[in-house]
Design a protein around this nucleic acid. Sequence first.
DNA 1: AATCTCGTTCCACATATCGGAACAAATAAG
DNA 2: CTTATTTGTTCCGATATGTGGAACGAGATT
Lengths: 270, 270
Amino acid sequence: MSAELTGIADGEAAGTGTLGKAMAVLEAVVMADGPQRFTDILAKSGQPRGTLHRLLSHLVEEGLLVQRRDLSYEPGLRLLTLASRAWSGNRFRDVAEPHLRKLHELTGETVHLGILRETEIVYVDKVESRQTVRMSSQIGKASPVYCTGIGKAALSLLPQPELERLVARMAFHAFTPHTHRSAETLLAEIADIRRDGHAFDREEHEIEIRCVAAPIRVSGSDLTAGISVTGPAYRVSMEQLTAWSGAVRAAAAAIGEEAAIRLGPGRGGP
Amino acid sequence: MSAELTGIADGEAAGTGTLGKAMAVLEAVVMADGPQRFTDILAKSGQPRGTLHRLLSHLVEEGLLVQRRDLSYEPGLRLLTLASRAWSGNRFRDVAEPHLRKLHELTGETVHLGILRETEIVYVDKVESRQTVRMSSQIGKASPVYCTGIGKAALSLLPQPELERLVARMAFHAFTPHTHRSAETLLAEIADIRRDGHAFDREEHEIEIRCVAAPIRVSGSDLTAGISVTGPAYRVSMEQLTAWSGAVRAAAAAIGEEAAIRLGPGRGGP
DNA sequence: AATCTCGTTCCACATATCGGAACAAATAAG
DNA sequence: CTTATTTGTTCCGATATGTGGAACGAGATT
């Protein structure tokens, strides 16, 4: 989780000028688990005191952060408002939704839609069995590519150079005993995925959780995405997942084609 | 330094330095109804060409915007990720949720939780009858205070000077024939709301939609919020709403007290 | 009272931003 | 086919803007 500090090799994680710094500070606060005091942020961000203070002031003035009575900082409501528009105006999710639903009816398990961003998969929609009213808890959540079905599926669509560029930037964290630990094993599996057209998550991100995923390519757009059917290991065997793989691939293909048509004029992927 | 700039007469968001400009541009794109081309944004933002171009580049580099093949700009996924954290880490919503649910069970109608931000109400949670899986469509949505039950209820908690400062900045847009058109009528109703402890929306925002709302004050925090029970006019009469008002006030009070206790150590309202 | 920690403010300095203007590439018009 | 227009990108000197070390003061701690 603190692999971001590694800017060394890459050299450009440092943030684009002023805006980059502001966003880094914002992220430090938002990604933290509770209200952050000035000193907390000071340590995480590494910015000098004066600079950080002004940065925070600006973020508060913009409504991106809120300062509480005890002077600590929290995420501001403006983030929600911006994201709300970003999400509801997203045509790609709109196109995919009926397909997700169909897949859920077929399998009875949770279905995810995710989009590739850099070295992560961002979940954009979810259809689940027990309809918790919650904002699907995971919408907007970003998970590493190398340990998720959708992630590996999406990677399989990338041209090899691009793939290798991304893989080089990954820090393989072992979430479970089955998580990929090296670029080699990951790249090997990607080759298989290219052949099969679908990917599995064999309890690589969370123990007892499996999934089968298929990549989505939208011709004419450069967005790379994927869908998956996820379930607990005790209920869904690998055989079961394999049996579903055809339906998942078909749904992914359908979404890709439909999106290619309807994404032109309207608002497209994220 | 910005105290005098942000304070009084100016209704324009002058934009706090560089970050302010960047956010203004971001908002212009995000709030638009589709992908925005350079020229579109140029017109809306009023920034000079060179400046705008650099601003957009930075926003894209930060993942806040995405540039499509046809060079037009769209909201980026990073917004979703940030908001996801901002929402799920929000303790206030967490505290309120069971009360919303109870209110829903009692009334059978949709229940909203909203927080006051400047001159708008931002919806933070929602419990509705037909559990659409969707990210409650309205979470994060911002509506004007003067035409929503929660908005008017929240206003009723403000000290008079603060209230007048806000009212002075409102542009009364007539969404329906029943929408407040002037500060006078609004302020008059606020006085009533202070007396009654609850507010109604008499089809002021959307025709055929009514609600009863109560304000939430959290002692020790400076957040002002409210909850409401909303329903279609054909199903919920004003008498019905009045009958529910006691329960709504009670729920609001309970949320306020509980939040005051549990908001200290954890992450509070955004 | 003395010390420490934390947040805020100040100000000389440097640099990132600014924005007009030139440029290139499409698209439309003549 | 040539000329005009629109659209996006790049350049660069001037300067506004952000930078960050240091001083300040309010609370908490001893």
